[in-house]
Design a protein around this nucleic acid. Structure first.
Lengths: 197, 197, 197, 197
DNA sequence: GATGAATGAGTGTTCATTCAT
DNA sequence: CATGAATGAACACTCATTCAT
């Protein structure tokens, strides 16, 4: 039987968090290639060796960080999820939640973008991430059944209802897009027009 | 036409091409971070030193390759560009051209995705790339003036008329999307519904 | 005394010494230009990476080594320094001490000669080296005040009382000079005749 | 039979000179180690390959340059050499000639200092250089025979009559020494006092 | 658990030299 | 004679990881 003293557990998690935050910060600032274990551990104020207590290796750290971010994003998106609302309202709420979360955590999102466009992405167990977004998929399916949403391939729907969020949130791509409520509303209108029957 | 007045060996375009292709191939297979100069030059069957005859450094090689790809993509998109056609037809043709080009040159596109999500992207002179896509921007503007297209921020329009192409072409993201004519047509319908008034 | 509060491996002074000795040996044998980090670390039986634990970079290693040698030389020269002796005796003792030290540590001296004639020399903080030789400067000044030594520019005096030691000790230059007591005495007579009033 | 048209010969020598001057300049500015063939040839405005027409290899270039400089220095020193003058006057004239030449050609001298303190120096055929300084040696010998100069080892005499010139001319060592006629005269007095009987 | 020392293998880049023209 | 292209080997330096403490 293992007994954790609160203080110890606390300390551990602080360190683990520090490492993750350091990784995200560095990847965003200097990129994947340049973010070495030495630099990450220095940024987190721990020894390189310490990093290997919490993660099997560098790959493990990066993949964990990514999954972590994805989970947080889905949590935020599904906050106040209410399947009894009209489909459009559900999606609008999701849309706003995601925008809010992303704009509050740009650095998480930038990391995820880099990660998901690198071969590291192949190392993520797909189901583990997809399960977080399961409820959204179900909404779309219901919409199709109710003849409210176009009956087209799921990826196509996603490309118009979720992916534009990424695109618009990406400051690299959209320097001219001001991330305010009105613009976000406007954008949702387009998204809805795209998928609605 | 190049005229050499003095005797010397000429730069070998085959070699330069081999280096670019090697870079693209490797970045796609093992990722940006792992694509070292040594590996790229080995893949291209040249000495690492040779690479530095054609490019100032690694960064220069990668940026050049990216700009090159972007140019080719815009050339392909604007093939048969005819501003006298109806707006919808112009965009539909652009849409198909881009899909065709991307599906024929997945490697180019995958490279570009990785590149544009890495810090290397900041090194690209934005105007140099944007000028290629100038004609498309003008079409959208005309559509707005003619009250055919919604009068919203340009970035929002782009997020629904261009960015979904990227998303749908990205096999990492859309494993379930079959890149055939029918699907592409369907997707365009959604895009058009999104932006049309 | 160093107290370590946390568990860790200590820096190994033996290793640091081995690196310095290897650098000196190699610079003497194959010259500054050819003494690469790889060769130095191999000679010292450590990994090239280890060298960078002890020194910021190659330059740091070489400069540190040089300053180190200069310090040792001045320590040796000033051994038994007694300002109450007659000026001539003080200088004679300095002269002998330096000759003795140099002839016992030819490698150090040869390294210093190469170093001080290379652009690396500009990287040495001048005061750091000059402070070691401060007492000798004071002796010359006192000699001038007492009308025992010619009242001429300090550099000129140094060129006759210190620099000939370098010249005579340099086996490259003086293959015919046997470094024995009689010769050293003789040489000092000339030095003294040069500077005395 | 080979016929050289004047123009051709001229051109050759210009190039050869340009290479030597470039080598000297670069060695002085960035040091022996950093002076690569590529940089030297670029500085001389020729192709790296051209350098190998005039010199067997890099070593050959550097050694030739050094011997060249030494020859020029001895030519300058022995200008107006008149063995019928009193010994002191001969040496004084030599002394002034050398100082003048060195102060007019600091860069040659700096190169020579670096070179002679590097292992490259071993590659110089000693006789080739020493023969240039033969007349000076003969003067010293005559002085000893005539009981004007101390009868001590030749290297010791050289260390006081020639080497101080190097020391005083070396701006790295003697920042406080102003290279004017009065100072040079003063310095010669010390040199003469050192060696005279 | 946590550390800084230690490292072989690798990084991007430049080297001295040769080659075809 | 003169060139710029071409290169394997070397350069200074950093990497991800392991080790003893």
């Amino acid at each position: 039987m293992i007994i954790y003293f609160t203080a110890m557990r606390h300390k551990d998690e602080l360190k683990q968090d520090a490492i993750i935050e350091a990784a995200i910060k560095l990847v965003n600032e200097i990129g994947f290639a340049a973010s070495s274990v030495a630099k990450i551990s220095k940024e987190a104020n721990v020894s390189p060796a310490t990093l290997y207590i919490y993660y099997k290796n560098k790959e493990d750290l990066l993949v964990s960080t990514y999954v972590n971010i994805k989970k947080k994003l889905s949590d935020a998106a599904l906050k106040d999820f209410d399947s009894s609302l009209p489909i459009r309202d559900i999606l609008e709420r999701l849309w706003h939640n995601m925008f809010n979360y992303i704009s509050l955590h740009r650095e998480y999102f930038k990391f995820a973008e880099q990660f998901s466009n690198s071969p590291y992405n192949e190392l993520v167990k797909k189901e583990e991430v997809e399960k977080y977004f399961e409820p959204m998929v179900r909404v779309l399916k219901k919409g199709i059944e109710q003849k409210i949403i176009k009956d087209v391939n799921h990826d196509i729907l996603a490309a118009f209802i979720f992916y534009p969020i990424m695109s618009l949130s990406n400051s690299r791509l959209c320097k001219g897009f001001d991330n305010n409520e009105i613009n976000i509303d406007t954008a949702f209108t387009l998204a809805w027009d795209a998928i609605k029957l």
